[in-house]
Design a protein around this nucleic acid. Structure first.
Length: 365
DNA sequence: AAACACCACAACCGCTCTGTC
DNA sequence: AGACAGAGCGGTTGTGGTGTT
């Protein structure tokens, strides 16, 4: 490995490179240029980050908009804000920035976090799908209902002295199931359309899906014979709907049927969260049965199978009883947790097979 | 007191949109 | 028209605090 004549020695080359590096270093120090600047091509970020601070301009902007901005409101969300978020989310979905424009002082990030950590869980706990704001129909949401059924069954077995009252309640349960099935069938197909968000939806033949199968007609006939339930299709009878079926907070006499219409309004069927949310350890949530018991006048405080009512949940408030989440099928594909289609493809095949065939249901009905 | 689980929230990430050159 | 930078947005993660065992 003889070195060619006139070619600088290896030591000299290294020395020259060293001199260049030192010169560059001094140059950078004099001009206050960070050395890191020359290694920007190794930076994995898409923006240049100033030395010393591991922050890019983007994160600084986020820090300002989400935290440092002086007009940001601190503290917990008020119930009004909570309700606003719920209402807006039912209409807008996860458009956090749009929702934030309606809540001065709150950032989209804050609202998003609040939703993910609080409101979503609340809705799930209440048995509502946080995406559709409608009663969930998956098996997990049905578990509290089934537990309530099981408890009721057990109580029935051990409390023969109240068989008569239980029988009445079972009849009411069957009627309620029929009613909810009918209500389900009568849902407008475009229940998720913006027009459906209006709280002034009035039931009328024009906005009601006339059922087209015989099962439904049979059900209608059976209901019309039943004095317990009103004739829904006759406007004159709408005012006769028992108050428990109606949103009692609506004092307007414009014949607005809350249960069925509520079911078509993504959020309006929800009661005030504070008034109906039950503590975590209470397995019996706002279920059909809590409403059912209260509607039949059999829900005496001493009754052994008494389930919580809205009064139990919030004695101080006079808010209406929670809406009736339809008795849910277990695993039906009409309204999955994340993809509600707004209407059943074959309504008559959903309830009877999956829910009404439930042995517990048969025993009770 | 320590370990662990859970919760709340700021921060980050990746993507899309928009304005500028 | 296309490239680029910055802003905006929604989903996700990291982390510190708190409660529980």
């Amino acid at each position: 490995m003889a070195m060619a004549a006139g070619e600088p020695s290896l030591n000299l080359q290294v020395f020259n490179i060293l001199i260049m590096v030192i010169s560059l270093y001094i140059f950078c120090i004099k001009l206050h240029i960070p050395i890191k600047f020359f290694f920007f091509f190794f930076d994995d970020g898409d923006e240049f980050r100033p030395p010393g601070l591991n922050r890019c301009g983007k994160s600084c902007r986020l820090r300002w908009t989400n935290y440092l901005r002086p007009d940001i409101k601190r503290g917990k969300f008020t119930p009004e804000e909570e309700q606003t978020i719920l209402n807006l989310h039912s209409v807008l979905g996860n458009k956090w920035s749009t929702i934030a424009t309606h809540l001065p002082g709150r950032t989209d990030n804050e609202i998003k976090n609040f939703w993910n950590t609080h409101l979503k869980k609340k809705l799930i706990q209440m048995g509502f799908d946080p995406m559709t704001h409608r009663p969930r129909t998956d098996i997990f949401s049905s578990i509290p209902h089934l537990i309530a059924l099981a408890n009721l069954k057990e109580l029935m077995e051990h409390n023969s002295w109240e068989k008569q009252a239980v029988r009445l309640q079972n009849e009411a349960a069957a009627q309620m199931a029929k009613f909810q099935y009918l209500q389900y069938l009568l849902q407008p197909p475009s229940s998720m359309s913006p027009a459906a968000f209006s709280n002034n939806n009035i039931i009328s033949p024009s906005n009601v899906n006339i059922p087209n199968d015989f099962d439904t007609f049979d059900l209608l006939n059976s209901l019309s014979k039943d004095s317990t339930l009103p004739l829904l299709m006759e406007p004159s009878s709408i005012n006769n709907i028992p108050s428990s079926f109606m949103n009692t907070s609506n004092n307007n006499s414009t014949t607005t049927i809350q249960p069925s219409i509520h079911d078509s309004i993504p959020f309006s069927h929800l009661p005030d969260l504070e008034s109906c949310l039950i503590s975590k350890d209470n397995m019996v949530q706002t279920s059909n049965f809590s409403v059912l018991c209260s509607t039949q006048g059999e829900n005496s405080p001493t009754s052994p199978w008494r389930l919580p009512t809205s009064d139990d949940l919030s004695p101080a408030t006079s808010s209406p009883p929670p809406a009736i989440p339809p008795v849910t099928n277990t695993g039906g594909d009409d309204c999955s947790a994340s993809s509600y289609e707004g209407g059943p493809s074959s309504p008559s095949s959903i309830w009877p097979e999956l829910l009404l065939d439930d042995p517990l249901f048969h025993e009770l009905a």
